[in-house]
């Protein structure tokens, strides 16, 4: 499966949750599949989805699901120790590990070679780290939500992108409606 197929699969689970979504095609796909005020789309700033989601989870009690990418985790690797040492129970980091920089044309990342994000997350101090096969994402995500424990999911899937329109919504509108959804 490719990322967009996974997102389509788990959209019914994501719908009721606060979601922080990675830059580029992941956000375009989620926006096209099921736009919700509870979705925060990153339009830039590669790498910071996991950090934004962690700050959000630490600041309020609702469950936060971050949809991140392998390339973005690799560019902000310092995030893993910060998560490992501060992880609140309402934080779920779902790394879509397609082994590539999908948004920029599927150039391979090091996770398609020797690098293992599951082991790195564990070594950084993250306690609940699960490797998930693409077809099992929905089940694993629901289990993580139900567990009430902070979880890092590394979802192994194929590289590839669906053709979706660019998000034209104003960033302040995205942010404002998201904050209203967080506070409601």
């Amino acid at each position: 499966m490719i990322r967009s197929e996974i997102l389509r699969d788990i959209a019914p689970i994501l719908r009721d949750q606060l979601v922080v979504c990675n830059i580029g095609i992941p956000s375009q796909e989620l926006h096209a599949i099921d736009d919700q005020p509870t979705n925060f789309y990153m339009l830039g700033t590669m790498g910071l989805a996991s950090s934004i989601g962690l700050g959000l989870a630490l600041a309020q009690p609702k469950t936060v699901i971050v949809i991140d990418g392998d390339g973005s985790i690799l560019t902000n690797l310092g995030t893993l120790p910060t998560i490992g040492n501060n992880c609140p129970d309402n934080y779920i980091l779902m790394i879509i590990d397609n082994g590539s920089y999908g948004s920029t044309g599927d150039q391979p990342t090091y996770t398609s070679m020797k690098t293992d994000l599951v082991a790195m997350a564990r070594a950084a101090g993250c306690e609940n780290v699960v490797e998930v096969q693409d077809v099992d994402t929905g089940t694993a995500l629901q289990a993580a939500i139900d567990s009430g424990k902070g979880t890092v999911m590394v979802v192994k899937c194929d590289s590839g992108n669906a053709k979706m329109p660019v998000i034209t919504m104003d960033p302040v509108v995205i942010r404002d409606r998201f904050m209203k959804a967080v506070a409601s």
């Binding site: 922080v20 925060f40 700033t45 790498g47 910071l48 989805a49 996991s50 950090s51 934004i52 989601g53 962690l54 700050g55 959000l56 989870a57 630490l58 600041a59 309020q60 902000n76 310092g78 995030t79 120790p81 910060t82 501060n86 942010r175 998201f178 904050m179 967080v182 506070a183």
Partner: peptide, 25 residues
Amino acid sequence: FHIPSNKEDEGMGLCAGAWMGGKRP
């Protein structure tokens, strides 16, 4: 609440999230 970060851009991400969650960072 004090949360050390490993790099300042990461720290700004944390602050952005905290603010959207209702805390002043």
